[in-house]
Every structure is written in structure tokens, then in C-alpha cells.
Design a protein around this nucleic acid. Structure first.
Length: 891
RNA sequence: GGGCGGGUAGCUCAGUUGGGAGAGCGGCGGCCUUACAAGCCGUAGGUCACAGGUUCGAGCCCUGUUCCGCCUACCA
């Protein structure tokens, strides 16, 4: 026995940083552009550069890391390409806040200085999230880290923009868009979050020109009436067929506006009369275009009423609503106010109420691109897993509207478009132009807008690999193997990558899209800072270790269901990590460099053969599960195997041999088996819990290098060492059954574990008897039996508690140990239980339809079970009788 | 308004071609047995939301009801 290499408990802090550094320094994360091994590639969903690690990232990164580490063990040449996203609006907001604290604002600074300040901020804090990913153990190829604003990616963005423009797939135009008055920028449709809101529906009378009567319109946003340019009614509507006047006076402004007829108007809603505000409502905008109505912008880009609002100019839009209502009421024009629930759009970055606003913007014509993206998934060129997301993907792409890509902020890729102030020509070009190609003038003014961050993210799978250059990296790793992400960016990102990838690479960006769950709190609520229910992954890592966090996330990552996380669970898996640690600690007592060569014994005992067979099943199950992205099953299988088969049974079963209580060949076989199982189990576990497995691996005799360079076990089922051993499994099951039966009796009879038992084992089957003789020592040790009689005939002692295990009757002698009356109760309970089962099986077999129509193997299975149970029942009843007689004898 | 997901042990959840339901935690009882008390041994607990239907047989398939969650939508 040697001095143990491992401390008594596993201390993650002591090892995590060390091994991460070791892996990085030895380039174990690096993809090899010249390798001939099969390629496997993943591009990371780039976290925001302003981001701080949350549980969603932790899950996302863990799953990707499991896949990458697994693939490396299979021998693949893995590229996991990391990076961050410049997150235009979010980052600009953060930096603006910082500046505001110093009394500065971007307008005062000017564009160049402001962008300089953002870069400064990025250089200082941009690596925060990257360092946090490293703490999770992410095995990304950091030598290839990219940023959406770096030079290469910016070149790709520009190339794509110009190409799409010249193909007619990007255009500029004045349309109504979603405007965030706080961020002061346009937003794409999906960047608006809708929330149900208890609002009011105001009924307002618009009098005819003569001041009399007039239609009543209903609106939830009275302040926009100042920009009304018509009242619309349905042409079918009897109520408005013969109006005394086809013009009304717009209250509070005195403007005269027409009554128009449009079948867009729903006669059933409100009064059937609709006010039309083309500049502040997307539907009104469309109606307005149809009728050539002007749009009057009464709400400014800052959310303040414009000069067009007349007396209300200068008021905040919400204050204006109050004032308008007050004025209308005074004039007796506010005829009714009703409660009305409706949904209101909010900016997804700052939650400000979004204002539909008319302004010149750039758009991507989405439909032609979307068609190809739909087809690729329909044809299974890209698989979406779980499949249920396919529908959402199709539905969204089929109904997608043009994508507003211009943002009125400064941080981002500035649009490569210039207008000639002399002739008005629009130049869109990859290179900054010196002169107008039309009039040769030099008065070119660049468009101030930048592109939506998602525009650059959409190119991520190929821009990060060097596109537009034809790089070896692209050749080797595009399309990527899988994209791992949560459903909340299926439309923002996944769909757009599909569109851009197919258009510019002529191939899908990924073969698989694995959509994982959202991480929620214990009550199922979305974790958010404002509700204060966030569990910070870094805190968890500090308290429980990275491996515990990773294993927890993987174990709960069932497809299609969100994860409700609580510390209690993490603690449970922390215990599992510790269990692994201690099993290794135990192994190291027995395995050392000197005994290793002698451990190759062929004289395997039953427990050796059993655990090796179970190991092979486990390796197969883990591989199958991971191949199908069933992370929770892989984790669960490993948990069950390591804890309940290896630790609970095998280690206990091997102890007598290991401690030299049997013979030398058995001891060597046990040491060899112990080594093999630990060795292979570490590899199987490594993708999930890289740190503790590396730490143990490094100390396990007979290994060299990193566990990352090892090979996934059991891949070739034709090799003899990968054969399963069903005979050993079934024999061991009998042995374990007998041991459990004795323990059960001990527990039920309240016999202290310290009391050694006498046991009488009876079986009519000589083959079984021989097997049990071979395992007698094992049974005696694990069940704490002092004297064990094994026989094929004879009567069991009367004063005993008996259990039936398969074709074996196991009797624990109670004389002198305990009162036999307890046994009578115990037997009653067991008989009742068995009786219920026999009844159920009899009923089945008595059903002619079942016997005739069910598959023969099912019927024979039920028959066999029925026979076995009946046999067992006979024995139990006999035992019951013996006990009853015994009780009677004793009066 | 439309669509999707879920309701299984006290709690949190598994359950992959339909053959009579599992785990972890918690509970209860007993153990400091020389890897581990972050542990070991044993044990209780379920009309699988409700109602029908298909089937020899349904947690699983179909219909309806109900509750919860999410996504989506231009009825002001």
C-alpha cells in the first residue's frame, strides 16, 4: 500500500485554474487546418461584449463543450470558434451611461471621439465574459477568437452590404418603422417586445365642417390625433353611406380632413370610424399610401411633440396625451372612455415604449433569401433538433417582412453609402469613394447610420473563418457541424445566418441546429436582474466547482423542457463529483506503479466480469445519447453507473480480493479491473466534468499526457475486450438479489448491522447451487453472514425469515436474534403484494383476446412471469405456515 | 386572435417505435463497516390533470374540458 495521492475531499479551486492553463499551453483546444481527421466544428453564439456570464451562457457553453470534448475523444479534428458580438445598442448604452456620470454626452463629444471611447471601454472590459467562459472550462480555440467589429469581419460586412445592394436585395426608403425615443434609433420588428397592457379606448367626435355632428372615432392613442390626415370608414358600412359632409374638422387643430372609404376598417370595432395617422401607425401608413394622404409627424425622434402639434408642441408624448384629453373634454368632444386591454411594444434593449415613426431607413428584402432558408430545412440539409422548432422557423420565415437594418447610433458598422450633395447620386461601395461617379464632384457625404448588429452576426459562421477570402479554414470547417443555441434567438440569429450562409456560401451554415432549454429559477420564472432571482454561475463555481455546475446543467438539459435550477441540485451533483474523487482515492490505495504489470490477470472474478460488462453498456449508451443530443440521458447513465454500480457494488465486492483476503490472482484481477473501469469511466465523464477527471487522470498510473488526448472506449464492438458478458450480468444479479434480500430482512427485523447472521440457502437447481458456492465468500461479506449453509435439499430451520430470489430460497435464522412474530407480519405484507401481481397476470391470461391478439413473445413473457410468481407464492405460503406453526408451538 | 409546450411520488423532473411507471432531493428506520457522514444499508409514497375514444392492452395514439407557461399577430 502506498501513501494516497489524493486528499480526503475534492477541492475544485485547487485544480481548475491549473488544468485550464495546462490545456491552453499545450494547444489541446487548437484546431488543425492540415489534419486529415474528420472535421467537427462549432461557432460559438457570440456573447455581447458588454455581457456578464449568466446561466443561459453557462448551459449553452457547457453543452457545446461536452460535444467538442466528446468529438475530440472520438478522434475528430475539432474547431470551436469563439468570439464576441459588438452589440451596438447595448454597448453604446453602457458607454453613454458611463459618460453621463462624468457629465459628458456623445453629441458634445462628436462621433469620432465617442467611438474612441467605446473602443477604450471594449479594450478594458471586453474580455470579462471571455474570462468567464474560460472558468466554465470552455475548450475554444482561443487563437482564432473573433469580434464582429474587427477588421476582417468588417470587411465581410461591407462586402455583403454592397453585394446585396447591387443585387437589389438592399434598398433605402421612407417607411414607418419602430422607433425607440430613448435609444433614438430604429428597431427591427423582432426587436420590439410586446406586453399586454390595461389601457383605455377613447371615443372622440370629429365634427363636420359646419360644426355639427360628425363621426366618432375610437383610439387608444389620442395624442396622435394631432397628426391625423383622414377619417376612414368601411365602404360597406350603412351608417356612413350618406354623410352630410365628406370632410370633418380635426379638433384641437382646426384642420379640415377628408372622410375616406377603405375596407381595411373593421365595422364591428368601436364606432366603425377610424382615425388615420400615417406618420405614427403602421396600418395607417399603409392606408395613407393607398389614398395618397400626407403624413404629419407630430411626435419627434426624442418623444417630444413637434411644432406640427401646435399648442402641444414641446410636450412629452405621454404628457401630451393627458393635455389632449383634457382639451377634448372641455370642448365636449370626448364622448366615451372604455377600458381596453391591448399590447404595447417596448424596446428590447431599454424597455421604453416604442413609437411607430416615419423615417428614411435601409431594408433587406427578405423574401427571396427566406425561401432558400426554408427549403434548406425542409430538405433536411439543416436539421433542427428538437424537431418541434421547425414549425416556428417555417412560420416566421414564411411571414417575414423586410428587415430594417439601419440604426441611428454610432457604435457599429457604418453603412458604406454616400450621397453626392451636388447631383444627389447615391454611391454604395466597398472602398471609400473620392468622387461622385456621376458628376465627378467631390462633395460626398456618408450616411450616418450603422448596421443592425444582427447583420454582422448573420455572417458569423463564415466571416469568422476568413471570408471573403477562400481560406483553408473555410474549406475544412464550413458548413459547421452544429449550432447550439436557445430558442429565443432562433429568428434574430439562426434564420438570418441561414439566409446569409446560403446566399453567400451557397451552402447551409450548419448541418444541425440544437435548440436547448432556457434556464429558469426554482419557480420557473425567467432569471432577471430586476426580479433579483439570478443565480450567478461564477458564484456557483466558487461554491461548488465548475464540474458540479456543468454536470448539473447537462443532467437537466432534457430536450424541450426548461431548466429550473436550484442550489439544492447543484449540491447533489457536487456530491457526485466528490464520490468520483473518493472512488479514485480508494483505487489509488490498491493501484500503484509496482502492481500495475501484475494486474493483467485473466482470472477475472464474477464481479470483475460484471462491472466490465456494465462499463461497456455504459460507454455505448453515453455515445448513443450524445450522438442524439440527449445530454441528460448521457449524464444520468454515467451517474447511475459510477455511483450505483461501480461504487456501491463493485468496489465493495472487490474489497476482499483487494485486501488480500482471497488469493493473489483474484487480487491482480481486481486491481486490473479497478484500473480499467476507472480509466474508461474518467474518459466517459471527461466531456461533462473536465477538471476533476484530468486531475485524477494525471495521477492514475499507466496514463500519459492529458485525458483530452485519450480515446473514447469501446468504439469497436468486434474487439474481444469490448464484448459484453450477459452471463456475468445475470449471475451477478442473482448474487446481488440474495445480498439485498438478506439486508432487507435485517432491516425489517431490526437486526443491528453488527450482528452476524446465520443463513440457510436452498435451491433445487444444481447449476445455480454451483454458482452460489463460487460466490459464497462474496455473499457472506456483503450481507454480513457468519455461517451460510448452501444446499439443494432439506428443510429450512423453522425459526427463520425467508426471502425468495429467483429460484433460490434464502432463510435468515432468527433463533436467538429476534422474535419470530415479526416475520409473520413481514410475510403477510409480501404475500399481499405478490398476490396482487398474480391476480393481474391471471386476468390477462384469462382474456382470450389478449392471448390471441398480443404478440407471442409478450404472451409467453406474461406466462413465464405468472409461473415464476406462482412458484414464489407457494414458497411464501409454506413459510407463512411454518411461522404460524412455530408461533402456535410457543403458545 | 393564432400557434406551441407542459400538468407523472411531498418537491424537481425522466419515461425514444403502446406491453402495467423510474431517478434525484426530501421523509422514515438503522449504521462513524479500514474511499467517501458531501457517506453506507434498508424503506414508505403515484386513479400518470379531468372526461370520453381507438386497442387484447394507453403515461405514451385520437377527441373534448380545465389549469399553467411561452411564442406570435396591424382590430384602432
Amino acid at each position: 500500500m502506498t501513501e494516497n495521492l489524493l486528499d480526503k475531499g475534492y477541492d475544485p479551486k485547487a485544480v481548475e485554474f491549473r488544468w485550464y492553463q495546462y490545456w491552453e499551453e499545450n494547444n489541446h483546444f487548437a484546431a488543425d487546418e492540415s489534419s486529415d481527421n474528420p472535421s467537427y466544428s462549432i461557432v460559438i453564439p457570440p456573447p455581447n461584449v458588454t455581457g456578464v456570464l449568466h446561466m443561459g451562457h453557462a448551459l449553452n457553453i457547457t453543452l457545446q463543450d461536452v460535444l467538442c470534448r466528446y468529438q475530440r475523444l472520438l478522434g475528430a479534428n475539432v474547431l470551436w470558434l469563439p468570439g464576441t458580438d459588438h452589440a451596438g445598442i447595448a454597448t453604446q448604452n453602457v458607454v453613454e451611461r458611463n459618460l453621463a456620470a462624468k457629465g459628458l454626452d456623445r453629441y458634445a463629444m462628436g462621433r469620432d471621439d465617442f467611438i474612441g471611447a467605446v473602443w477604450e471601454w471594449k479594450d478594458k472590459y471586453g474580455s470579462t465574459i471571455i474570462n468567464q467562459l474560460k472558468r466554465l472550462g470552455a475548450s475554444c480555440d482561443w487563437s482564432r477568437e473573433r469580434f464582429t467589429m474587427d477588421e476582417g469581419l468588417s470587411r465581410a460586412v461591407r462586402k455583403v452590404f454592397v453585394a446585396l445592394y447591387h443585387e437589389g436585395l438592399i434598398y433605402r426608403g421612407s417607411y414607418i418603422i419602430n422607433w425607440c425615443p430613448r435609444c433614438r434609433t430604429a428597431l427591427a420588428d423582432i426587436e420590439v417586445e410586446h406586453a399586454e397592457h390595461e389601457g383605455r379606448l377613447y371615443h372622440i367626435r370629429y365634427p363636420y365642417v359646419n360644426g355639427e355632428g360628425g363621426p366618432i372615432v375610437a383610439t387608444t392613442r389620442p395624442e396622435t390625433m394631432l397628426g391625423d390626415t383622414a377619417v376612414a370608414v368601411n365602404p360597406e358600412d350603412e351608417r356612413y353611406r350618406d354623410l352630410p359632409d365628406n370632410h370633418v374638422v380635426l379638433p384641437l387643430t382646426g384642420r379640415t380632413i377628408p372622410v375616406i372609404y377603405d375596407d381595411y376598417v373593421d365595422m364591428a370595432f368601436g364606432t366603425g370610424a377610424l382615425k388615420i395617422t400615417p406618420a405614427h401607425d403602421p396600418n395607417d401608413f399603409v392606408v395613407g399610401e393607398r389614398h395618397q394622404l400626407p403624413g404629419i409627424k407630430v411626435i419627434g425622434d426624442d418623444g417630444i411633440m413637434t411644432a406640427e402639434a401646435g399648442a402641444f408642441a414641446g410636450l412629452d408624448r405621454f404628457e401630451c396625451r393627458k393635455q389632449v384629453l383634457k382639451a377634448l373634454e372641455e370642448q365636449g368632444l370626448l364622448v366615451k372612455v372604455e377600458d381596453h386591454a391591448h399590447s404595447i411594444g417596448h424596446c428590447y434593449r431599454c424597455q421604453t415604449v416604442v413609437e411607430p415613426n416615419l423615417s428614411p431607413q435601409w431594408f433587406v428584402k427578405t423574401r427571396p433569401l427566406a425561401e432558400k432558408a426554408i427549403a434548406a430545412v425542409e430538405n433536411n440539409n439543416t436539421r433542427i433538433i428538437p424537431e418541434k422548432w421547425r414549425n416556428d422557423y417555417f412560420l416566421w420565415l414564411e411571414n417575414v417582412r423586410d428587415w430594417c437594418i439601419s440604426r441611428q447610433i454610432w457604435w457599429g458598422h457604418q453603412i458604406p453609402a454616400w450621397t453626392c450633395t451636388d447631383c444627389g447620386f447615391l454611391v454604395v461601395s466597398e472602398e471609400d469613394p473620392d468622387q461622385c461617379p456621376e458628376c465627378k464632384g467631390s462633395a460626398l457625404v456618408r450616411d450616418n447610420d450603422v448596421l443592425d448588429t444582427w447583420f454582422s452576426s448573420a455572417l458569423w459562421p463564415f466571416s469568422t473563418m476568413g471570408w471573403p477570402d477562400k481560406t483553408p479554414l473555410l474549406g475544412k470547417f464550413y458548413p459547421t457541424s452544429v449550432l447550439v443555441t436557445a430558442f429565443d434567438i432562433l429568428f434574430f440569429w439562426v434564420a438570418r445566418m441561414m439566409m446569409m450562409g446560403l446566399h453567400f456560401m451557397k451552402d447551409v451554415p450548419f448541418y444541425d441546429v440544437y435548440i436547448h432549454a432556457l434556464v429558469r429559477d426554482e419557480e420557473g420564472k425567467k432569471m432577471s436582474k430586476s426580479t433579483g432571482n439570478v443565480i450567478d454561475p461564477i458564484d456557483v463555481i466558487e461554491n461548488y466547482g465548475t464540474d458540479a455546475l456543468r454536470f448539473t446543467l447537462a443532467a437537466f438539459a432534457a430536450q424541450g423542457r426548461d431548466i429550473k435550477l436550484s442550489e439544492k441540485r447543484i449540491e447533489g451533483y457536487r456530491n457526485f463529483i466528490n464520490k468520483i474523487w473518493n472512488s479514485a482515492r480508494f483505487a489509488f490505495i490498491h493501484i500503484d506503479k509496482e502492481t500495475m504489470p501484475g494486474a493483467q490477470s485473466q482470472r477475472l472474478t464474477l464481479p470483475d466480469r460484471w462491472i466490465l460488462s456494465r462499463l461497456r453498456h455504459t460507454a455505448d449508451s453515453v455515445a448513443e445519447a450524445l450522438d442524439d443530443y440527449r445530454f441528460n440521458e448521457a449524464a444520468g447513465t454515467l451517474y447511475q453507473f459510477v455511483w450505483h454500480e461501480f461504487c456501491d457494488w463493485y468496489l465493495e465486492a472487490a474489497k476482499p480480493a483487494l485486501y488480500g483476503k482471497t488469493d493473489e490472482p483474484s487480487r491482480n484481477a481486481a486491481i486490473g479491473t479497478l484500473w480499467r473501469v476507472l480509466h474508461d469511466a474518467l474518459i466517459l465523464l471527461h466531456p461533462f466534468i473536465p477538471f476533476v477527471t484530468e486531475e485524477i487522470w494525471q495521477k492514475l498510473p499507466g496514463t500519459k499526457g492529458s485525458i483530452m488526448q485519450s480515446h473514447f472506449p469501446g468504439r469497436d464492438p468486434t474487439l474481444p475486450e469490448n464484448q459484453k458478458d450477459p452471463a456475468a450480468e445475470s449471475d451477478m444479479e442473482l448474487v446481488m438479489g440474495i445480498i439485498t434480500a438478506v439486508r432487507n430482512i435485517r432491516g425489517e427485523m431490526n437486526i443491528s448491522p453488527s450482528v452476524a447472521l446465520s443463513v440457510f440457502v436452498l435451491t433445487g437447481d444444481n447449476g445455480t447451487l454451483d454458482k452460489l458456492r463460487d460466490q459464497a465468500g462474496l455473499i457472506r461479506t456483503l450481507a454480513r453472514i457468519e455461517a451460510m449453509t448452501l444446499t439443494h435439499s432439506g428443510d429450512k430451520p423453522k425459526a427463520s425469515a425467508t426471502a425468495i430470489v429467483k429460484n433460490v430460497s434464502v432463510s435468515v435464522l432468527l433463533e436467538g436474534v429476534i422474535d419470530v412474530s415479526k416475520e409473520s407480519l413481514r410475510l403477510d405484507k409480501e404475500i399481499a403484494k405478490l398476490d396482487k401481481e398474480i391476480n393481474m397476470l391471471s386476468k390477462k391470461l384469462g382474456n382470450n383476446d389478449f392471448v390471441a391478439k398480443a404478440p407471442p413473445d409478450v404472451v409467453s413473457q406474461v406466462r413465464q412471469q405468472h409461473a415464476e410468481h406462482t412458484e414464489k407464492m407457494k414458497k411464501l405460503e409454506k413459510n407463512r405456515q411454518t411461522i404460524t406453526e412455530l408461533q402456535a408451538d410457543r403458545g
